[in-house]
Design a protein around this nucleic acid. Structure first.
Lengths: 141, 141
DNA sequence: TGCTATACGTACCAAAAGGAGAGTGTCAAC
DNA sequence: GTTGACACTCTCCTTTTGGTACGTATAGCA
């Protein structure tokens, strides 16, 4: 066994100082973030935050590149996590509306900081990548 | 072809209003976030932000559950993206120190909001999941 | 009698992620 | 002479992810 280094832990304690330092909190938070921070969830969150209530097909148009399968899966997951509500109108061609809950809206606001950071530092990251790749290429010569 | 809905887009324009509305910006930002927001990168970012400079093995201890393979890969990627610096001391048992750059530090701060949100709303999410699962189970009866 | 639209569900399959475990090189300590 | 520390690297193998394509129900329309 070389995987999973020793369980010495207790990190992150300073993070939310007044909040609980529950031993399982970090694991749960990590899992939550891991689940939320996949590509599609983030984009759907973003589109929904900007356009409000929306139907399935329209969402699929705005979330560029997503397949129907993934959109369905992502929306189900978000519904399960309480981030969106799914309203089915029992009409002839089915009509389903998706909308962010308060919880989802709050998350999208929390993520806003990351979006802004990414937009502002995009060039720096790209430059760093070029430099790194160049260095690696030279070492291999 | 049913995948990838029509390319009607132009979303997110309001996001960083004054900033460029470059057609490729969104794609690049999305890719950047997608890369950054994987499980290990986030945790490494967090641990490094709290403990400062650190060696490989120690990092592996604090990032609970990570395998050496994944830790190496994650760190290489972060180095490539300019988030960490890797300092090799050419001594007998190798000694390598990892440290966040300004860029990495900035990102960890941007992510802080998400951490806080996750910690604060963990119970709500768990409750939503239980409700959802129950509803699904009842529908299948 | 088809045809279309909507919001999926499902079967199949390829690619990627990621864990387990062993190997590597070097030098110092026992 | 062998063991151990460190920071990996490599191979093998399983699991997960995600894309493609097709199926489905219903009713209005031509």
């Amino acid at each position: 066994m070389q995987t999973a280094f020793s369980p010495a832990d207790a990190s992150l304690q300073a993070h939310i100082a007044a909040e609980a330092i529950d031993p399982r909190v970090e694991a749960l938070v990590t899992e939550l973030i891991g689940r939320i921070a996949d590509k599609w969830t983030m984009v759907v969150l973003d589109v929904l935050a900007e356009h409000g209530e929306m139907r399935f097909t329209r969402l699929g148009e705005l979330v560029e590149g997503v397949s129907q399968k993934m959109l369905t899966k992502t929306l189900r997951q978000m519904e399960r996590d309480g981030l969106v509500t799914r309203t089915v109108h029992p009409v002839v061609p089915p009509r389903v509306e998706y909308k962010l809950t308060e919880l989802g809206l709050g998350l999208s606001e929390a993520f806003c900081g990351v979006w802004i950071w990414a937009a502002q530092h995009r060039e720096q990251v790209e430059h760093a990548r070029q430099t790194f790749d160049q260095r690696v290429a030279e070492q291999q010569k």
